[in-house]
Design a protein around this nucleic acid. Structure first.
Lengths: 255, 255
DNA sequence: TATTCCGATAGTGAC
DNA sequence: GTCACTATCGGAATGAG
């Protein structure tokens, strides 16, 4: 199976629910959610619309082909993707807490003019720390402020705008978006220019490490202040935030 | 010692003849001949003018600086280089015969705007088969028909031409020559376009192998025809051309 | 047009 | 904007007490 058509092959299967669990995360009536085979962050899923009347698979090639159909129909597909993505997001948030002890941003959005056939909504965590994130194109395609990554909420808002605005945004011409991928590297958090990819990857790791440190301190502080107000409870079960890395939130502080 | 000034350091030594034999091939009153440290062919030498009155080392930075001096003085330096290069060429031709059983072209010439300081005349065999020949710049800088490699005979002929022509050729501006190094790869023998360096290197090897085969056949034929005219000699010692590769030129052909 | 190292860039082929 | 592979292209450092 070619890389370019693998997603289409999934939605055209008679029993997609039989896909191996390393590929398929969830199968609903409207959507398949698969693990991105080359995750560009710690969490990275693709939500695919299943082929359902009145749409045919050719209507679902990409966002552009979908937006050419009746607005109501297109909107319904996007709403289905959104609903499924919310479930995925909730699952990711739970995993963030249980595995890493804190939560960080999750982005949901599309790429204009993707290479892989069949519309796919990216659900990706904002760390962008992954060995599969290798080049400028990879990074810029997920940069949340650059303009290439089309946030789902923005795309949905096009439906509430002027028809002329909707038409303009629906064009999604490769030539309009291609140059964005070649722009200089800048950190999406601190907006600093970064010399090259190895430097960027180091920086992203540092930024995420910093966020983790701050978030855990914040959580510990909150927990401590809550404890101060509580009636002391003998041997309550430990909450998820305390399960990793041996950080000591033993309450031996101020109280 | 930096790569860029190593040649200058040689000619400024009080006793250049004491240079190790792996570096210095020959030292005359007027010239040093050194082995190119990164030979771009089986045989590759550099002939350097020694610093002698009325010239100073700064007059000998490159061909351009030399050609700015009095024509007579400049011509004398080039003639000294030429004389030494002829000696080197003779030596190479002997080595070609003794090591490989045949002879092939040897080119003598300059590079306009070289990186390494101090004028150096390249004496290089036309095989261009060497692991140190790695990129397009390397190859194009020795391509005998491209215009970047300035054949010694051509440079000497400038002195017999109109002063205006001499002036024009003496300019040797980097901007005029640089683009030549980026031209597409073509075989200097058969003029065919070649896709990339690995392909070119294979092709150059084949071309040289072909030349060797043809030359050895030619030599064998000539030898055979000479032999036919000779009074038969019992057990003559084998000549140099026959010492390698076990090719059978047994004379069983037409004669 | 010194080399070498690193990294970005470009074209290809994949099934 | 699929990946992985190959090759090219582009800048920077280079030695040395």
């Amino acid at each position: 199976m070619s890389n370019l058509t693998v997603l289409r092959s999934y939605v055209q299967m008679s029993k997609p629910e039989s896909l191996p669990p390393a590929i398929l995360f969830n199968c609903s009536e409207t959507c398949l959610t698969v693990f991105d085979a080359f995750p560009k962050a710690i969490f990275h899923f693709l939500v695919l619309p299943r082929v359902r009347p009145p749409l045919r698979v050719s209507d679902l090639t990409d966002l552009r082909s979908l937006l050419k159909r009746e607005r109501k129909t297109a909107k319904a597909v996007l709403q289905d993707l959104s609903d499924e993505a919310d479930n995925v997001k909730n699952m990711i948030q739970e995993e963030m807490l249980s595995r890493y002890g804190f939560q960080w941003q999750i982005w949901m959005g599309f790429h204009p003019a993707p290479s892989m056939e069949h519309l796919h909504l990216h659900v990706i965590s904002s760390d962008l720390c992954s060995p599969k994130l290798k080049n400028k194109k990879h990074y810029n395609s997920f940069h949340p402020k650059l303009g290439f990554f089309l946030h789902l909420s923005d795309v949905l808002s096009w439906f509430d705008a002027d028809p002329s605005y909707f038409e303009m945004m629906s064009r999604l011409r490769k030539k309009d978006y291609e140059p964005l991928l070649k722009e200089d590297l800048t950190c999406w958090r601190c907006e600093r220019a970064v010399k090259n990819m190895p430097t960027l990857k180091e920086h992203l790791q540092e930024e995420w490490d910093n966020e983790r440190r701050k978030e855990k301190a914040r959580i510990a502080k909150k927990k401590a202040s809550l404890k101060n107000r509580e009636v002391p409870q003998p041997s309550s079960s430990p909450s998820q935030e305390q399960t990793d890395e041996g950080q000591s939130y033993d309450g031996s502080g101020k109280s």
